[in-house]
Design a protein around this nucleic acid. Structure first.
Length: 606
RNA sequence: GUUUUGGUAGCUCAGUUGGAUAGAGCAACUGCCUUCUAAGCAGUAGGUCAUUGGUUCGAAUCCAAUCCAGAACACCA
């Protein structure tokens, strides 16, 4: 359903009849009429003045008259300057409601099976998830769901960064200071425990840097302090030991690998719990420990094809100056991989797994350059899938004090934040006392729903690429433009529908089409629902869940207005009563569908 | 320095791809629960759309320059 397109077609027909000019519907501007004017949709005539050599008002008058006379759905029209405002008839809107009601999963596109992979989350296994990860996870999950709603065959993946020097840091600190502590003995989630040792490492290492710098200063008192710090950072006993450990790990040293397995196991258990709480999931999980050696064959291939070149010291590069980028290293002189080497190999690996037409990487905008380079290289290598690759780049979540820094303890922990939101949801719900008859299990489920709904909506309503601000002092709101407001409207409708069903009041199409009367608020609401398919498409085209979040909010707001202005059960006209129930039911369905698409659940009662 | 992304109400954000008098929420103020869930509704107040110039019937939106802020530019990941 696309009402604007239909109207554009009617206008095009009118132009053909009146002026003998062939214009396609997409060349014509149709938009919803601004609320301060009379009408539902507006055709902008300015653009035609040159072609038709007429005044904009004149064109509006002529087309308006033609449409009204030749189409029963056009009830009326008025012209203000270059704007032709068209009012659609009651019967048109009632028919629209009937069509929406008869369409299962209204808004969703038919399945076409185009394969798309969405990689998101991709955590490090050396520290627990924080607020920034929440934005990533919610975004990735939502984009995947939105693509599904648009008919794609979606594969959600997670590439876990489970090896490397940073992992060795936690391992080393644990080995030195852990005293055999486990998540059980410490009473901590595994990811938090491992994160604790990452911090321990950092602290001890900082101490060593200071000591080294002091020593350097004695030896070379005239050297620049920053340079000394940099040098010290690379040479502390702890860093050297961590590097040694990494080497051992790569050689498969049994003791090191066992420790790594043990600690990663703790982290995975912790992550699983958090993922479950967040309501996100994956179809396949990749581990860097399995993929970090990939890509060397790609380097050979690139050399053979002349896409890459070798420098005298044996390192391999690609020249991307023509693309406005720089020279980029793809293999070290000692033959070992760099970050981009594995990403090249992993891209092939993923494609072999799932031959997708689109591949989306949900990764923060600090890696914009990296992905530009990666995609360019793959194109140059002639990968046919390269054209479908997309870096869904999102902005950082900042605190009023600036960036979150784990070293300064200003990180907002994901588990803590969710727990806090649940507590607030519980307090607020108990205050209102509307679910006193709930079992404690049902109540807890509601708190989780509300907490996560609030959090997801809060993070997803903002356009992905924008940096956003989170103020821990002010807890996330439950009023106004929030997830909870939307959930509240759903619960309210659910309550109406329960009552209608109990009283056996019908609300199928036959009970209202051609009989009921619609008020302005109802038409506004119906109009919004009818836009759902376009909004879903828009969200998919732009990989932007904020479009769906906004849709759910606009819809809830329109419903709230309707709910306060008009009564359902006190309406004397039976057909109109049925229509209002049907309208409510369809609103609830659209709200639920939209909220599910951004990963938020919606309650029947709250 | 180069590249890149932003700058809209006191605060947090929208703005349907160039359309009419730029919108929401929060915070402030005023009304509305004997009535389908008030986690609500209605209203008041709040703007040099960073600045300047350009493109045209028409610019928050497109182009150029400038200012401010963030990020990236490692034989790190």
């Amino acid at each position: 359903m696309n009402i604007e397109l239909n109207i554009a077609n009617l206008v095009a027909q009118g132009i053909k009849n009146l002026y003998h000019q062939e214009l396609t519907a997409t060349e014509l501007t149709i938009q919803p009429t601004k609320k301060e004017f009379e009408g539902d949709f507006t055709f902008v005539t300015f653009a035609l003045t040159k072609l038709l050599r007429k005044k904009p008002e004149e064109i509006g008058e002529e087309i308006g008259k033609f449409l009204k006379e030749n189409n029963p759905f056009i009830a009326n029209y008025n012209v203000i300057k270059g704007f032709l405002n068209l009012k659609l008839s009651q019967s048109f809107w009632l028919q629209t409601l009937a069509t929406i009601a008869a369409t299962p999963n209204f808004g969703n596109a038919a399945f076409h099976g185009t394969k798309v992979m969405v990689e998101y989350s991709s955590p490090n296994t050396n520290k627990p998830l924080h607020l920034g990860h929440l934005r990533n996870n919610f975004l990735g999950y939502a984009v995947a769901e939105i693509l599904k709603a648009n008919g794609y065959d979606v594969m959600k993946t997670n590439l876990v960064n489970d090896r490397g020097i940073h992992i060795c840091k936690s391992m080393l600190a644990y080995q030195k200071f852990g005293e055999g502590e486990t998540p059980e003995t410490a009473g901590m989630k595994g990811d938090h425990l491992v994160g604790k040792y990452y911090v321990v490492f950092d602290k001890a290492n900082k101490q060593q840097i200071q000591e080294l710098v002091a020593q350097y200063q004695q030896d070379t008192p005239n050297e620049d302090i920053e340079k000394l710090k940099e040098k010290a950072g690379k040479n502390t006993p702890l860093i050297l030991e961590a590097q040694e450990m990494l080497k051992k790990w790569e050689e498969g040293d049994a003791e090191t690998v066992d420790l790594w397995k043990k600690m990663n196991g703790w982290v995975y258990a912790g992550f699983d719990e958090t993922y479950k709480m967040m309501g996100v999931n994956f179809d396949k999980i990749y581990y860097e420990s399995n993929t970090y050696l990939l890509g060397k064959n790609v380097v050979e291939e690139g050399l053979a094809k002349g896409v890459f070149f070798k420098k005298e010291n044996g390192s391999v590069w690609i020249d991307l100056k023509e693309e406005g980028l720089d020279e980029k290293l793809v293999l070290r002189a000692d033959g070992t991989s760099v970050y981009i080497t594995q990403d090249l190999g992993t891209a092939d690996y993923k494609y072999a797994d799932f031959p997708m037409e689109k591949s989306i990487y949900v990764v923060g905008n600090e890696q914009d350059y990296h992905f530009k380079v990666l995609f360019t290289i793959l194109k140059k290598l002639g990968r046919n899938y390269a054209g479908g690759m997309y870096h869904l780049s999102y902005g950082m979540v900042e605190l009023p004090s600036g960036k979150m820094k784990s070293r300064e303890g200003t990180v907002v922990d994901a588990d803590d934040l969710i727990a806090e939101m649940m507590t607030i949801a519980e307090e607020r719900t108990k205050e209102l006392g509307k679910i006193d008859d709930f079992s404690s299990e049902d109540a807890k489920n509601l708190y989780r729903m509300l907490a996560l709904g609030a959090l997801k909506y809060y993070l997803l309503r903002v356009e992905p690429k924008k940096t956003m601000l989170f103020n821990p002092e002010e807890s996330i709101d439950f009023q106004g433009d929030t997830g909870v407001y939307i959930q509240f409207n759903h619960a309210r409708i659910a309550s109406l529908i329960r009552r209608a069903d109990l009283l056996h009041i019908p609300y199928h199409s036959e009970s209202f089409v051609a009989k009921a009367t619609l008020q302005e608020v109802e038409i506004e609401l119906l109009k919004l629902i009818s836009f759902f398919p376009q909004r879903i498409q828009e969200a998919a085209n732009e990989y932007s869940p904020s479009v769906i979040a906004d849709f759910a909010y606009q819809l809830s707001k329109a419903y709230s207005r309707f709910y306060n202005e008009l009564s359902v059960f006190n309406e004397p006209d039976e057909a109109t009563k049925s229509m209002r129930l049907a309208l409510s039911a369809e609103t609830a369905k659209a709200i639920k569908n939209a909220m599910n698409m951004i990963g938020a659940e919606v309650p029947e009662r709250m």
